[in-house]
Amino acid sequence: MKSTILTLGILLLAIPGLVLAQEEGAKEEAHEKELAHEHSAEMVNLPTAAVAVLASTSGSDVKGVIMLKQEDGYVHLTGEVINLEPGEHGFHIHEFGDLTKADGTAAGGHFNPDGHEHGAPGAKSHAGDLGNITADDSGVAKIDTKAEGLKLHIVLGRSIVVHAKADDLKSQPSGDAGPRVGVGVIGIAKPSE
């Protein structure tokens, strides 16, 4: 009988502690849900505008500014590149935003998350294959192109590269476009006012 009373007494003393632990657990769970909701709200507000300021690689004087804007189903790229040789030049998104090598090679290869072969812009080529830009006789290339199916948020922090020669849109792995003459990291643009 004494052991039953002792057991009941211990249980009665333990119950308030269990209730407090449950309340603390419920508060912690509610806080975690609140944080998850805030995180998902941040994910909904993905950046819709970005910019890449092209810097010259060694032996080049190429410069430019490329604006990127998320649209419904594509990223719209606009801008201008100067000091190019007249004619066509390969134009790609490369996998890294690393400008630590003077020749631009630290930017890595074309951005290609799906493992496609290189080719003309489209669903069966690298996500970073943007084709060619054309410089006029004064060395200026105006850019106004749509990267169909691309999502802006997945290319932030990567780079845009302009090459010395035209991309032949077929040679593997990168279109035989020659050395990199301009490279710029894709960063979030200040919202327009």
Results as ranks from 00 to 15, higher is better:
Met1Cys: 08
Lys2Met: 11
Thr4Lys: 11
Thr4Ala: 15
Ile5Pro: 00
Ile5Leu: 15
Leu8Cys: 10
Leu11Val: 12
Gln22Leu: 14
Glu23Pro: 00
Glu24Leu: 14
Gly25Asn: 14
Lys27Asp: 11
Lys27Phe: 05
Ala30Asn: 08
Ala30Thr: 13
Lys33Asn: 13
Glu34Ile: 06
Ala36Gln: 12
Ala36Met: 09
Glu42Asn: 11
Val44His: 06
Asn45Trp: 02
Leu46Ser: 12
Ala49Asp: 11
Ala50Glu: 00
Ala50Met: 04
Val51Ile: 15
Ala52His: 01
Ala52Val: 06
Val53Leu: 11
Leu54Met: 05
Leu54Arg: 04
Thr57Ile: 03
Thr57Trp: 04
Ser58Glu: 12
Ser60Val: 04
Val62Leu: 02
Val62Lys: 07
Val62Gln: 03
Val62Asp: 00
Met67Gly: 03
Met67Cys: 01
Met67Pro: 00
Lys69Gln: 15
Gln70Ser: 09
Gln70Tyr: 02
Tyr74Arg: 09
Leu77Asp: 00
Leu77Gln: 03
Thr78Met: 10
Ile82Val: 15
Ile82Gln: 14
Leu84Asn: 04
Glu85Cys: 00
Pro86His: 10
Glu88Asp: 13
His89Thr: 01
His92Ala: 13
His94Ser: 05
Glu95Cys: 03
Phe96Ser: 10
Phe96Tyr: 15
Phe96Thr: 02
Gly97Cys: 07
Thr100Arg: 14
Lys101Ile: 00
Lys101Asp: 02
Ala102His: 02
Ala102Val: 10
Ala102Ile: 04
Asp103Gly: 06
Asp103Ser: 07
Asp103Leu: 09
Thr105Phe: 07
Ala106Val: 01
His110Phe: 10
His110Val: 12
His110Arg: 12
Phe111Val: 03
Asn112Glu: 05
Gly115Val: 06
Gly115Thr: 02
Glu117Gln: 13
His118Gly: 09
Gly119Glu: 05
Gly119Phe: 02
Ala120Asp: 04
Ala123Asp: 10
Lys124Gly: 00
His126Ala: 05
Ala127Asp: 09
Ala127Glu: 08
Asp129Gly: 09
Leu130Cys: 06
Asn132Ala: 06
Asn132Phe: 04
Thr134Ala: 09
Asp136Lys: 13
Asp137Tyr: 03
Ala141Ile: 04
Lys142Trp: 00
Lys142Ile: 03
Lys142Leu: 08
Lys142Gly: 01
Asp144Pro: 09
Thr145Met: 15
Ala147Arg: 04
Ala147Tyr: 04
Glu148Leu: 09
Leu152Tyr: 03
Leu152Gly: 03
Leu152Cys: 06
Val155Phe: 01
Leu156Phe: 06
Leu156Val: 08
Gly157Lys: 11
Gly157Met: 08
Gly157Asp: 11
Gly157Leu: 07
Val161Phe: 04
Val162Glu: 05
Val162Cys: 07
His163Arg: 14
Lys165Trp: 12
Asp167Leu: 03
Asp168Glu: 07
Lys170Val: 14
Gln172Val: 13
Gln172Ala: 11
Pro173Asp: 11
Ser174Gly: 15
Ser174Met: 13
Gly175Asp: 05
Ala177Arg: 06
Ala177Ser: 15
Gly178Phe: 08
Arg180Ser: 02
Gly182Phe: 04
Gly182Gln: 05
Val185Asp: 02
Ile186Ala: 08
Ala189Leu: 10
Ser192Asp: 11
Ser192Arg: 15
Glu193Gly: 13
